[in-house]
Design a protein around this nucleic acid. Structure first.
Length: 502
RNA sequence: GGCCGCGUACCCAAGUGGACUAAGGGGACGGAUUGCAAAUCCGUUAUUCGCCGGUUCGAAUCCGGCCGCGGCCUCCA
């Protein structure tokens, strides 16, 4: 099977072949850390974490870089407004961002370079561009000369002269062309000292795009495989990165450009600065969402749609997705009861344990599960189609549930059947882990107070007595009252189990 | 105005030239199971993929036009 990825450069799906055989370099544009991260900021990290996991699964040696932009106009404005320093603000926001994505299972980032820690590299790159005649100094600023890049616009498929360039007034009488962009910005007198760096052109700070070019070269080389980011970054940010880097090194920059769709609320892009969005922003913040929903649910919500498609965020949709996730949690609980083994403990998969079985009844179950596995992998090979992959996990869950039903594994001793079912669950988990799901048992929503467990045992025992005596009114009363306080009872073949609804 | 993306059932969402079935989830309805529920399983819920044309033996899928929604061209994940 071969991996195909959609490349924004060519606007079609291409066969994925890394620049250096066996090795893959990925650069993802991270946040500018001036305000708390929102749900949209989590999409890139979650998708690319999944992409890296899949590439590693396929045997590639992957290096993944996510930048932190901590020197920028917005940070200067915001830190002043808050009466703090640029770095205090940046550190605080960065910490919140990293903690949020860590909770969301984004664990595979290799480097998290900060712009402020790469000033020498940035200055060096500016100097090289000036030496090449592709950039010019003007009043302490350094601008990239867009006309020096003959194929400028190839990523976003637009020509600079066709844009509404006249609308952009900026304080840039010094630019030769309206399309030229700042590589280096001269410090203004009122700017905080911590963002005034020495340079050959006087005190100043990096422009917006240059840090990505400088840092990607440092960690991934002049040419690397995958560059990612939100679709809103295609122009001008990514376009300018290409212009700088390719002009500087005379080599192709990133081979594949992957752009994720934007998260929307009420059909509008989250982070848009209108009043309605401003009012809603607090609720769309990662910190707030993580206090309301489990990280696994948020990750599953994002992963259940193809990454290029825009996602509409709503409480209704989150609630619907939660019910889907519960299907898997219930299956794991069921397996645990039937097999008296922890399904979150890694064990042999079907392929590992039952590759050559003679039993006919076993064979059809194994074949069915492996067929779902194949579908999962085919979906992932098709431009990381996580939505399709999730679908095959549901089908595998149904297959396993049916097997448990048909073989009555919950009530009848059947060691072989239980081994098969457990191995199938391990197969499912081995795939889900590529998506970053079901790696660990989700923490119990309730308090872990043993008194609650003991009291529930008492109630269930009393209700069992009532049922035995056919006092169903009483038995149902217990169940209804518990339901009202958020506890549901299930009378299963092996006994009554209870669950706290969260 | 230019460039880009999206439009599949009640909702979410795969599929992007022919097979398998237009996946899967939520919801609703019916059945098995259950004392009744819950959970689980089985079945039903798109003869049709925004609209109109075209190409083709064959189109949700390719081409053209139109309509609707959104993004970018200024800071954005």
């Amino acid at each position: 099977m071969s991996l195909r990825v959609y490349n924004t450069l060519s606007q079609e799906k291409e066969l994925f072949e890394p620049v250096r055989p066996g090795k893959v370099g990925i650069y993802l544009c991270g946040p500018t850390v001036y305000k708390p991260s929102h749900i949209g900021h989590a999409v890139g990290p979650i998708i690319f974490d999944t992409i890296k996991r899949y590439l590693v699964y396929k045997g590639f040696d992957v290096t993944w870089v996510v930048n932190i932009t901590d020197v920028d106009d917005k940070l200067i404005v915001e830190s002043k407004a808050q009466g703090t320093t640029v770095y205090e603000l940046a550190d605080r926001i960065t910490a919140g961002y990293l903690e949020a994505i860590r909770q969301l299972g984004v664990t595979s980032i290799d480097h998290l370079p900060k712009a402020s820690e790469h000033i020498p590299e940035i200055i060096d790159m500016c100097r090289r561009l000036i030496d090449k005649g592709a950039a010019y100094v003007s009043g302490g600023d350094v601008y990239f000369d867009v006309s020096a890049d003959t194929d400028y616009g190839k990523l976003s498929h637009r020509k600079p002269e066709e844009q509404q360039a006249g609308t952009r007034e900026l304080a840039s009488g010094e630019k030769r062309n309206p399309g030229d962009f700042a590589l280096w910005k001269a410090s203004k007198p009122d700017e905080p000292p911590e963002v005034q760096f020495d340079s050959p052109w006087g005190k100043g700070r990096p422009g917006w795009h240059i840090e990505c070019s400088a840092m990607s070269v440092k960690y991934l080389g002049e040419t690397f495989d995958i560059h990612g980011g939100g679709m809103d970054l295609m122009f001008p940010h990514h376009e300018n990165e290409i212009a700088q880097s390719e002009t500087c090194f005379d080599k192709p920059f990133a081979k594949y450009w992957l752009h994720n769709g934007l998260t929307r609320f009420n059909t509008k892009k989250i982070s848009k600065s209108d009043q309605e969005m401003a009012r809603k922003m607090g609720e769309l913040t990662l910190t707030h969402l993580l206090s309301k929903h489990s990280p696994e649910l948020l990750r599953y919500f994002i992963i259940s749609t193809h990454y290029r498609r825009p996602i509409e965020f709503s409480d209704e949709e989150i609630a619907a997705k939660k019910k889907g996730l519960d299907t898997f949690y219930r299956l794991f609980e069921r397996i645990e009861r039937a097999c008296r083994q922890d399904p979150y403990q890694d064990g042999p998969t079907l392929e590992q344990a039952f590759s050559s079985t003679e039993n006919h009844a076993d064979q059809s179950f194994i074949r069915e599960c492996l067929d779902h596995q194949l579908r999962f992998l085919e979906a992932m090979d098709d431009d990381f189609n996580t939505g399709g992959a999730v679908g095959s996990l549901f089908e595998m869950a149904t297959t396993i549930n049916r097997f448990i039903d048909e073989w009555r594994l919950e009530t009848e001793e059947n060691p072989r059947g239980r081994d098969l079912a457990m191995a199938a669950v391990q197969t499912l988990r081995s795939l889900a882990r590529i998506l970053g799901l079901f790696d660990q048992r989700p923490p119990r929503a309730a308090t872990t107070d043993h008194l609650v467990d003991d009291l529930m045992d008492v109630l269930i025992a009393l209700r069992a007595e009532a049922r035995k005596a056919k006092q169903y009114t009483l038995a149902d009363l217990v169940r209804d009252r518990l339901k009202a306080v958020g506890i549901s009872l299930e009378d299963r073949p092996g006994g009554t189990v209870w669950r706290r609804e969260s």
